[in-house]
C-alpha cells in the first residue's frame, strides 16, 4: 500500500532546511502540502480546520528538523507529525463541540442523505458522515496502511478498539450506501 506521503526527498534539501534555509523549507512545504492537507481534511472535514492543521504541521516539523535522524524516510517522519497534530486537533475540537460516537450513529441509523454520484455511489459522503474518531481510524488503517496495533498506540487505545472502529465504520458506510444506492456495493465474500 503506497501512502501519498511516500515522496523521496534529497537529504541535502533536508539538511539545508534544518539549517534554516527558507527556500528549502518552502520546497518541502510544496512537496508535501497535498498529502498533509488531504489527511487533515479527511480527519477534520472542514477546510478551515484542515488549513490550521496544515500550518501547525509544517511549523512544528520545519522548526524541529534537527530532531529528524535520517535513519528512516523523511516522509514517514513528517506523516507521523501530521497524524499526531491532526489527532490532537480532533481531540480539541471534540471537547469544544462534542462529537457523536459510533454507538450514537448506529443507534440513530445512518445518514439520511447519502447522495449518488454518476457512478452510483458517493463514498466520500458516506465517509464524511462517520464520527470523527471512526473517520480517523479508518483513514489511518485503510489509506495510510497503519496496523491496528499502531493505531491503538497512537490513540492511546487498544488494538481491538481500532479493529472495531474500522469494522463498524465499514458496516455503517456499506449500509448507508446500499440504502441509498439500492444495490449491494460491497458483497460479502463469505
Amino acid at each position: 500500500m503506497n501512502s501519498s506521503f511516500a515522496i523521496d526527498v534529497d537529504a541535502q534539501l533536508i539538511e539545508q532546511a534544518a539549517r534554516g534555509c527558507t527556500s528549502s523549507c518552502e520546497q518541502l512545504y510544496r512537496l508535501f502540502q497535498r498529502p498533509v492537507y488531504t489527511l487533515a481534511y479527511r480527519f477534520m472535514q472542514c477546510p478551515d480546520d484542515a488549513q490550521e492543521v496544515v500550518q501547525d504541521v509544517f511549523i512544528k516539523a520545519l522548526s524541529k528538523l534537527d530532531r529528524y535522524r535520517g535513519d528512516a524516510p523523511f516522509w514517514g517522519w513528517l506523516r507521523q507529525v501530521a497524524v499526531n497534530t491532526a489527532l490532537s486537533a480532533l481531540r480539541k475540537r471534540g471537547r469544544r463541540k462534542g462529537e457523536m460516537s459510533m454507538s450514537d450513529l448506529l443507534e440513530n441509523q445512518l445518514p439520511s442523505h447519502v447522495s449518488q454520484t454518476s457512478h452510483g455511489i458517493d463514498i466520500h459522503q458516506a465517509y464524511s458522515q462517520l464520527p470523527a474518531t471512526t473517520r480517523a481510524v479508518i483513514w489511518l488503517h485503510d489509506v495510510e496502511g497503519y496496523t491496528h496495533a499502531e493505531i491503538g498506540k497512537m490513540m492511546n487505545r487498544s488494538t481491538s478498539f481500532s479493529k472495531s472502529q474500522v469494522a463498524r465504520g465499514h458496516a455503517a458506510m456499506r449500509s448507508g450506501l446500499e440504502y441509498e444506492a439500492g444495490f449491494d456495493l460491497c458483497p460479502q465474500t463469505s
Binding site: I123, V143, S164, A167, R168, H170, A171
Partner: peptide
C-alpha cells in the same frame, strides 16, 4: 464485528483524489 472489515470500501477510500489546500 471485528472480522467485518471491507476491502472494497478501503480501496474506494484509497481511490479518492488528493486535495489541494484552498
Amino acid at each position: 464485528i471485528m472480522n467485518n472489515q471491507d476491502p472494497s470500501i478501503a480501496q474506494a477510500l484509497r481511490d479518492l483524489p488528493q486535495l489541494d489546500c484552498p
